Computed example of a mutant assay.
Amino acid sequence: MSRVGQMAGSARRAATSRAAIPLWIGGGLLGALVVAVIALGGLNPATSSAAQLVAGEEATTPLYTASVLDAHLTDEIEDEHVAAEDGDVLVVVTMRLENLADYPVGVGRSADRAESRLLNVAEPLLELSGITQTASARAWRTDDSIGGVILQPRVPVEMRLVWPVPADAVTSGTVTVDVYDADETRGQVILSSDNITWRRAGLAAQFEIDVEGAR
């Protein structure tokens, strides 16, 4: 090979080496970035940001607050004419709710065109975690008031919520009550443009509660 050819070959190899340098640098930087992300937990599964609470503590969402006070199992509540079906049991949870909106809402029913969707819908704001209810939940005030529970603005109300569930669904001696954030939507009903609905958003809190009478 002539001296000129050797010089040309050397020049090509040098150019190729220089072109490869940025690729090696880029690969090294990318590898360092991946290591850093893993070290910071960036590739770990997402964890729930829901508050983990116990009896007596309070969960606060933009539209309401909720506290779980106690829970127990029973087969029948005579005063309210509620009884579990064969193979079921009633989970009775005492809660305190406060409506933070500037209009009344009902628990398990609508009030003045406002629907809270707290219970008995496809995605309720309050539910037992990991347990499927077998019939509609019920709610009533603990002060023996007659009629449905209506939450007036800024007035805390203590009530009992009852979920019928399979008898073998509560075996650990505890239940967890899920409390969800709510988004306020308006004007979703054709015949009532000022209708207000609370729709479930993210999980805000979980109350792990000891259950009296667990089997």
Rank of each mutant, 00 (worst) to 15 (best):
S110A: 15
R18Y: 10
R113G: 08
N195K: 11
I21Q: 10
W24Y: 05
P164Y: 06
T65W: 06
A14N: 14
I25P: 01
A205L: 00
I25W: 00
E123H: 12
G27W: 04
G106V: 09
D70H: 03
R109S: 12
R199Y: 01
E115C: 05
G31Y: 02
D178Y: 01
G42T: 01
G87A: 05
T61K: 00
A20Y: 09
D86H: 07
D168R: 07
L203M: 09
G42R: 03
T134W: 03
I146S: 14
V162D: 01
V68H: 06
S2E: 11
M95A: 04
G31K: 01
A71C: 04
A36D: 11
Q152E: 15
D178N: 13
G26C: 15
V165F: 03
G213E: 00
E123W: 10
L151I: 11
V165N: 11
V54S: 14
V34I: 03
S116W: 11
P153T: 15
M159A: 02
L151M: 13
T171P: 06
V82A: 11
G213Q: 04
L161G: 00
S193P: 13
V177S: 11
D88H: 14
A204W: 00
A214N: 08
V91F: 01
A59W: 13
S17I: 15
E80H: 15
R215M: 10
L151W: 08
V155H: 14
A135P: 08
A214F: 14
A20C: 07
R199V: 02
Y180H: 15
M7F: 14
E184N: 05
R138L: 14
R18N: 13
L128M: 08
G130D: 12
A114H: 03
A50G: 10
D144I: 06
R12E: 08
L23I: 04
M95I: 06
A83F: 12
V82G: 04
A135V: 08
A204T: 04
A167L: 13
A205I: 00
G173N: 04
G148N: 03
G187A: 05
A50C: 01
P166N: 05
R18W: 09
I150D: 12
V35I: 15
A169T: 15
G41F: 08
V121M: 09
A205S: 07
R215C: 06
L151K: 09
R215I: 13
L118R: 02
Q152F: 14
S172L: 01
V34K: 06
T60F: 05
S129W: 01
E127I: 10
V189G: 03
G41L: 06
V170I: 11
Y180E: 04
V92A: 00
L191C: 07
V175W: 04
Y64T: 02
L43P: 01
L119Q: 06
S48P: 11
T171A: 07
L125I: 14
I25D: 03
S49N: 05
L23K: 12
G42L: 02
P153D: 08
R12S: 01
A137Q: 11
V175H: 05
G31N: 02
S10E: 14
A122G: 06
E212N: 00
V91E: 11
D102W: 09
D102Y: 12
V107W: 12
